[in-house]
Design a protein around this nucleic acid. Structure first.
Lengths: 142, 142
DNA sequence: GTAATCTCTCTAGCGGCTAGAGGTTCAAGG
DNA sequence: CCTTGAACCTCTAGCCGCTAGAGAGATTAC
C-alpha cells in the first residue's frame, strides 16, 4: 500500500497541511518519498493518523497525544500512565463544563432580564456587564 | 483621579500588557500621557475596563465586546442589538457544553473500561483511541 | 503531449494574550 | 537634591493548533 498525502487525508479526514504539521511536530514519522520528493505513506501511517485524529476529537492536546504514542511504542509497561493521561483529560473537560455552565446561567439571567425593545441606555444586558453589582456571584475561571 | 497603568491593573484584575493590548485593539481609548510619556487613566477608563473584563469572563470575544462598546456609545437606539449579541454568546456556550458532554461520556467509557494495571498492549484506553470500532458513535465536532 | 490536479516548501496569520529585551520615568527615602 | 528601585515605555517573538496562500515542481488521465 502506498498512499499520497491527499489519499491519507481523504481516508482519515485530516487535512493535508495538518498532516504535514503533525510530521513537523514529531507526531508522525517522516514517510518515504517518491522519486519526485512526494510523501508516500503505508498502512502504519494510516493507523497512527487515525489514532491521532480520534484523540484530537476527544480533545487531547498534541503533547498528550505524543505521550500516548510514546507509550504505544513500549507495550510492555503497565498501562497506568495511559489511564492517568486519559483521566487527566477527563478532569480538564469536566472543569470546562463546570465553568461553561456557570457562564450559561449568568447569561440566561442577563438576557432574560432584558425585554429587548427599550432604549440602550436602560438595557439590562449592558448594565449587567458594566457593574458587578447586578451580577452577584463571582464567575472567575478556575 | 489619575491612575497609572499599574493602578488600573490592580483595580480591575487585568494585567498590564493586556491593557496595552486592548488599547492597540481599539477597545480602550488611548489615555492621556504624563510628561514622561506614561499612561494616565481616569474613572471612565476604569469603568470601561471593568466592562471589558466582565464580558471576557463571560466568554465574549473581543470583537463582540467591541460591538457592545460601540452600542454603549449610542444609547438612543433600541437594545435589540445588544440582546442579540448576548444570546448569540449563549448559543455558542451551549454548543460548547453539548460537545464537551459528549466527550466526557466517551472518556468515561474509555477510562472505565480499563482496569489500569494490565500491560499496555492490552490497554483499553489505547485500543479505544486506535480503533473507531471500539468507540461506536461519531463524536465529530459541530 | 498536454492539461488538470496534486504536491512541494516557505511564510504569515488567526485569537488573546504572555514573555522578554533594552531603555526611560517616577516616587519615596536619605 | 540625589539616589535607588520599582514601574513604565516600545518593540519583537512566542504560545496552541492549525489555516491560507504564493510560487514552483510532480503526477496522472486522456
Amino acid at each position: 500500500m502506498s498512499l499520497s498525502i491527499g489519499d491519507l487525508a481523504r481516508r482519515t479526514g485530516v487535512k493535508v497541511p495538518t498532516i504535514r504539521y503533525y510530521e513537523a511536530r514529531g507526531l508522525l514519522d517522516a514517510p518515504q518519498r517518491s522519486a519526485g520528493n512526494q510523501r508516500r505513506y503505508d498502512g502504519g501511517a494510516l493507523e497512527r493518523l487515525g489514532f491521532i485524529r480520534h484523540a484530537r476529537d476527544l480533545g487531547f492536546s498534541l503533547d498528550a497525544i505524543a505521550q500516548l504514542i510514546e507509550l504505544q511504542d513500549h507495550p510492555d509497561q503497565s498501562c497506568e500512565a495511559a489511564t492517568r493521561i486519559a483521566s487527566g483529560q477527563l478532569d480538564t473537560i469536566r472543569r470546562k463544563i463546570r465553568r461553561l455552565r456557570a457562564l450559561e446561567a449568568e447569561l440566561v439571567r442577563i438576557t432574560d432580564g432584558c425585554n429587548g425593545d427599550g432604549p440602550l441606555r436602560d438595557c439590562y444586558v449592558l448594565a449587567s456587564l458594566a457593574g458587578h453589582d447586578l451580577c452577584g456571584h463571582d464567575h472567575a475561571g478556575t
